[in-house]
């Protein structure tokens, strides 16, 4: 979702919603990434080994660290692009909610094991 298509110039006295939209979309992406990286680590022995950042915690350490770092990176990038804009928040919310629901569902082992 690019900023030029989704944003307009600020015209109202209220603060533009871009900063909030960036946080919301990034949170949806973060929730989705937790599930996706966990599935990748579960399906591939090589990725599973790569995800062992700290041996006592095992692959969970890498899965969560990667997801958190990527979530923060996505948030920082979106924030930098959108903070001075008013974006189409209904679209941003819709995408964020879909990603959030997918994140919730894909962390459920019987669903994750389908992949």
């Amino acid at each position: 979702m690019s900023a030029p298509n989704a944003s307009t110039s600020v015209s109202s006295a209220t603060r533009p919603n871009g900063a909030g939209a960036a946080a919301i979309l990034a949170a949806g992406v973060g929730a989705f990434l937790i599930a996706v990286i966990a599935i990748l680590a579960d399906q591939s022995a090589a990725i599973k080994r790569l995800m062992i950042f700290w041996k006592p915690t095992g692959p969970l350490s890498g899965v969560t660290t990667c997801a958190i770092v990527l979530w923060l990176a996505v948030w920082a990038i979106l924030h930098a692009r959108w903070r001075h804009h008013t974006v189409a928040l209904s679209r941003v919310n819709a995408v964020a909610f879909v990603l959030l629901i997918l994140g919730l569902l894909l962390t459920f082992p019987p669903i994750a094991d389908l992949f």
Binding site: A23, A27, G30, A31, V63, T64, A67, L100, T107
Partner: peptide, 22 residues
Amino acid sequence: WKEHIAWIVPISITMAAAVALQ
């Protein structure tokens, strides 16, 4: 399930806190 879904909690509430702060 627990070890992965739990991480959605801090992500969600950090977003909520950030929006409230901003």
